[in-house]
Nucleic acid binder design. Structure first.
Lengths: 192, 192
DNA sequence: ATGATTTATTAAACCAGTTTAATTATTATT
DNA sequence: AATAATAATTAAACTGGTTTAATAAATCAT
């Protein structure tokens, strides 16, 4: 669990004793492509760390799916809204390729936050990070054109395009598959 | 500072001693309509609690303003992105009406988080709240039509329409003033 | 390898918004 | 109260996307 340890310490100082206490609660889990960690109307009690693999987080409203995020190596994730609020989820967490996760229950997360002030601080700072990510997402949606967002994703997370179908990327960008296809065509013409 | 105290305790249990420690750092401040708490390229070192009044949080990209939020009574606020990242802001915090705030510096916020585990927990939970608010914002943008968002705002925060000009509300909803005017016209026709 | 299924592209008609510009209504100032 | 300044509406032309449907390309299973 060295990658998980490194990730935790990227947020704040954590003593070896505190780290040992925290890590005891994480369980390694292998999940197969095509399976689901979560479906709508289920409660979610787990927090995940992605060691290796890819999970898509999306909702389905009136038959059309809305991709919120793709979780890949090094991401902490869950359906954070349903997890925090303890309400039935509206989302799917679908495993896109055979993946390895570290899993911890909410009860155990609360134990580690109770256990030490430093671990509570880690909790605060990781929540801060989640906020920043979301904030940047809103900024992108409000201030950046679809075409620019597509190009930025292509640059920042190129491997996604090998790992998930394009129609999910379209949804992530807030487009239909047709819309994304048009943008790609426009760009390929411009490039000539 | 009873309202501030009540607000803090709405997040988690805080002892009287811890509360006293925290409150000593907050300073009451009166700010006049038309003034700015923040302008682009400035750093922001303060966290605010809105006692009475209204502040608009917006960016200006290529001459067009993008309203992120309206902060009214009971809101904790700052330019959270610039505050956390300690980078020059891209935003304005403009005072829309004579307002009363409680202000605390980031240095002092960190003092109170260092001081007690309970206050650190308050920090974590308030960050969680900020995340949830942002998350719901994204959900709205992605899943709800402009018209529906307008109607929801009208229902949830009707007083805003008395307090800030309509073109700022349009921007908050992701529209131009013309676009919002059209929606309003459409709705008034339907109502007949 | 072949056929079946899924995914991506293309075309055409459409639409909810935009932009620009003119007009009207409201608010603030003297 | 009159005037100036600001804000909101309307109209007209436009646009970047949508929807629907057909076709082409890629992937999967036997």
């Amino acid at each position: 669990m060295e990658d998980l340890q490194r990730k935790i310490r990227s947020f704040t100082t954590v003593s070896d004793a505190d780290m040992k206490f925290a890590l005891q609660f994480y369980k390694k889990e292998s999940v197969a492509k095509g399976s689901f960690l979560l479906k709508p109307d289920q409660y979610i009690d787990s927090f995940y760390f992605m060691k290796e693999g890819c999970v898509t987080y999306y909702t389905v409203d009136e038959g059309i799916s809305q991709v919120m995020e793709f979780f890949t190596e090094g991401y902490f994730f869950t359906d954070l809204y349903a997890y925090i609020q303890e309400v039935p989820s509206h989302a799917y967490l679908e495993v896109m390729e055979d993946s390895t996760l570290y899993t911890i229950s909410k009860k155990d997360v609360e134990k580690i936050f109770d256990y030490s002030h430093q671990l509570e601080r880690f909790g605060r700072l990781s929540m801060q990070k989640a906020f920043i990510n979301n904030f940047q997402r809103i900024h992108q949606i409000k201030n950046i054109s679809n075409q620019e967002r597509y190009l930025e994703l292509l640059e920042k997370r190129p491997s996604l395009f090998q790992r998930v179908p394009q129609y999910l990327i379209a949804s992530y960008l807030g487009l239909t598959p047709v819309g994304l296809s048009k943008i790609r065509k426009r760009l390929s013409k411009e490039a000539i």
